[in-house]
C-alpha cells in the first residue's frame, strides 16, 4: 500500500496542502495533474527526497515518514530517467544488489532475469549514451525493480516516447505488474494512460488530491480533461 495522509509540503511559492490518498497493495494507481501541479514533488516526498512540514507517508503498512530514502524500499523512475553515465546497463541492473551485498552468482541470476523481462539482453554491455528513449526507460525501470521493491514510483514514464515505443511500454508495464505484484504509483498528465493502466485514478489539483470514482472516466469527464 502507498498511503499519504494530511501531507503539508512547501516549496518556493507553491505548496501541497492536506494531501491524502491511498493506493491499496498490489494495485496500479495513476495520479494525474497538470504540469507544475506538484506531481513530481509528491513523488519526491514518497521517496524521502523531500522533507514534509507535516503529515505521514506509509508504505506497505510501515510508517516511513522519518526514514531515509535508502530505507524505504521504493523503486523510483524519475522523468529524466537519470541513468548513471559511467555505468553499463548491466551495472545499472546490479547496482541496488551490489549496495545490498548480494553474492556474485545471485546478482548474475537476477540481472539475467530482469534483462529477459525487460527485453534488454542485447544492451547489457552498453552505456547510457546512445540508448534510445525506450531503451533508457527500460534500463531505468530495471534498475528500480532489481531489488524487488514493494512499491514502484513512475514519473511520466511514457511521455517523450514515440507512438510505437509507447505501445511497447504499455505492454511492458502490464507484464511487470503481473510478474511482480508491486504496488505502483504512476504519474502522468495523459488521460489515456490512466484509462489503459489504472486500477485507481487520482487527481492532483491546486495542491489537493482526490480520487476519481470511475477509472474509465478520465477520457470523458470534462472536469478532469487536462491540456
Amino acid at each position: 500500500m502507498i498511503a499519504v495522509s494530511n501531507l503539508l509540503v512547501a516549496q518556493g511559492n507553491f505548496s501541497l496542502r492536506d494531501v491524502s490518498f491511498t493506493v491499496p497493495t498490489g494495485q496500479y494507481g495513476v495520479l494525474m495533474g497538470r504540469t507544475g501541479s506538484g506531481k513530481t514533488t509528491l513523488l519526491e516526498v514518497i521517496c524521502g527526497l523531500r522533507r514534509v512540514l507535516s503529515g505521514r507517508v506509509q508504505l506497505l503498512d510501515r510508517d516511513v515518514t522519518a526514514l531515509k530514502p535508502a530505507e524505504r524500499g521504493v523503486g523510483y523512475v524519475p522523468q529524466d530517467r537519470a541513468l548513471f553515465a559511467t555505468m553499463t546497463v548491466r551495472e545499472h541492473l546490479a547496482f541496488a544488489l551490489e549496495v545490498r551485498r548480494w553474492s556474485r552468482s545471485a546478482i548474475r541470476e537476477r540481472v539475467a532475469e530482469l534483462a529477459q523481462l525487460l527485453g534488454i539482453d542485447e544492451l547489457l554491455h552498453r552505456y547510457p549514451v546512445g540508448l534510445s528513449g525506450g531503451e533508457a526507460q527500460r534500463v531505468a525501470l530495471g534498475r528500480a525493480l532489481a531489488m524487488r521493491p514493494g512499491v514502484l514510483l513512475l514519473d511520466e514514464p511514457l511521455s517523450a516516447l514515440d507512438e510505437g515505443t509507447r505501445e511497447e511500454m504499455f505492454d511492458l508495464l502490464r507484464a511487470v505488474r503481473k510478474q511482480t505484484e508491486v504496488t505502483v504509483l504512476h504519474i502522468t498528465h495523459s488521460p489515456s494512460e490512466a484509462q489503459r493502466l489504472a486500477d485507481r485514478v487520482y487527481l492532483l489539483r491546486q495542491g489537493r488530491v482526490e480520487e476519481v470514482a470511475d477509472v474509465q472516466a478520465p477520457a470523458t469527464d470534462t472536469r478532469i480533461q487536462l491540456p
Binding site: C47, A82, F84, A146
Partner: peptide
C-alpha cells in the same frame, strides 16, 4: 544531474556511497 544521485539514494545508498559510486 543531482537526480542520478537521488536515485542512488532510493536504491539503498547512503550519501557517502552515492558520492563515491
Amino acid at each position: 544531474n543531482p537526480r542520478a544521485e537521488q536515485v542512488a539514494l532510493t536504491l539503498g545508498c547512503s550519501r557517502s556511497q552515492a558520492f563515491w559510486m
